[in-house]
Design a protein around this nucleic acid. Sequence first.
DNA 1: CGCCCTTTTGACGAGCTTCAATTCTGGTGG
DNA 2: CCACCAGAATTGAAGCTCGTCAAAAGGGCG
Lengths: 244, 244
Amino acid sequence: MIAGISTRLGPADAALRRLRALGDLDAAAIAAIEAASTRSRCLAPHEEILSERERISGATLLLEGWAMQVRVLADGRRQILDFLLPGDLIGHCHQEAPVASSTVITLTRARICPAPDPMVSPTLDHAYRMSLALDEAHYLRQITRLGRMNAHERTLDLFLELYDRLALAGLATDGSFAMPATQEVLADLLGLTSVHINRVIQQMRKLGEIGWSRGHLELHDLAAQRDLLGWHPVHVSSRWPRRD
Amino acid sequence: MIAGISTRLGPADAALRRLRALGDLDAAAIAAIEAASTRSRCLAPHEEILSERERISGATLLLEGWAMQVRVLADGRRQILDFLLPGDLIGHCHQEAPVASSTVITLTRARICPAPDPMVSPTLDHAYRMSLALDEAHYLRQITRLGRMNAHERTLDLFLELYDRLALAGLATDGSFAMPATQEVLADLLGLTSVHINRVIQQMRKLGEIGWSRGHLELHDLAAQRDLLGWHPVHVSSRWPRRD
DNA sequence: CGCCCTTTTGACGAGCTTCAATTCTGGTGG
DNA sequence: CCACCAGAATTGAAGCTCGTCAAAAGGGCG
């Protein structure tokens, strides 16, 4: 079992919570996820899950821990495209003979398992599609962050995104959550240097916007920060439509 | 007919070429596209095709002209997320009851039609999936551009992307293509100001990297520029697998 | 021909980077 | 239990890229 994660819950617990939040799952879907999670395997930090431009064998479900999609330029500059959190799908895509569009590396110790086939239940298929739509929303948000926000806004906006995403999996409440990324990792995601991120973070602490110590992040006024950044709930689609 | 576009070709010509480049289309697919293109309609520049957070009625196919996915911050800052070029699908997504993830506006005069239902042919369905995968690749490329490239690299990288995308639809050859975007539009896509874009462009002209006048852009050494930026062909998937 | 949008230019300032050194922290072994 | 170590956070000084403001020049279309 991974340190810092409750042992009273099944290994798929957070992931299951997230998928259920994306759409009601029927018994078949839940059983399939629980079955898949028994074939999970544990990864150390910085282990590669997918390699850019290599074939993907099948979709993977991230059960515990964080991972990141990464792209590295010829001269070594690194851009982190997105974080992957418990319950996120890795290498899930739209086509046969798929090829990884980016490298995926664990950030922390992590547990993964093969993602159950969406054919087992239309509700699971729906949840997967929602997950894909959310991925796209995250990319668009990241583009906006990098293109048109300053360092302070980028950092705050990222924290708000992480809070909402982790809350889906039950891993964040009351504006606070476990934050395993280093400032250097944040810098590579936000298109900044770790030195500058550090200065921004210190200012945010001074202003009382956040608290961050020992891997635990606290957002002090969610509502105020959200409308500072023009937040509105991500709403990619309605719930799984029920037949009346 | 739209000025500057050959009148000897059907209105769906460039779009059809692009989709055929994404995977061999069978007769049913081609017929469906040609049928859909007879129900096309013409839009003026700056007309809205989709509105963020509103319901999408169905996917749209861009036949001629350019459009752009846009997001506007509360204080008016604008980020262009991506350009949409002839043959691109608009509002194509993974789920029922879909909601637009961003606003889509025409950049030039444009012609659109309802995208034919992918159910008419598995080859068409495959082309649509390829198109989705390419969209994702464009987002990731845009994130990398904004996060880890300087102004000069961003501009060059964008031009190379546009060249490759337009070439798919037969709208670019020998390193040159019609470029309808203003420098201000480029700035809003590349996360810069139009003043700075202007200075970068002038430098590129002086260095002999590009020529750009009267809406026509020329890249002077594709190969050299490509490996300057670590280019490699976008390869999201194999062609439609043929049954042996 | 004249208007409006786009491009271009200049001067100045701010935000972020770079480099380098120092302090802190959590984990390890004696 | 404490000394030690490596990675992470922090600090300072200096400089460059890019933004801002403002004004002028160009170019296409009615």
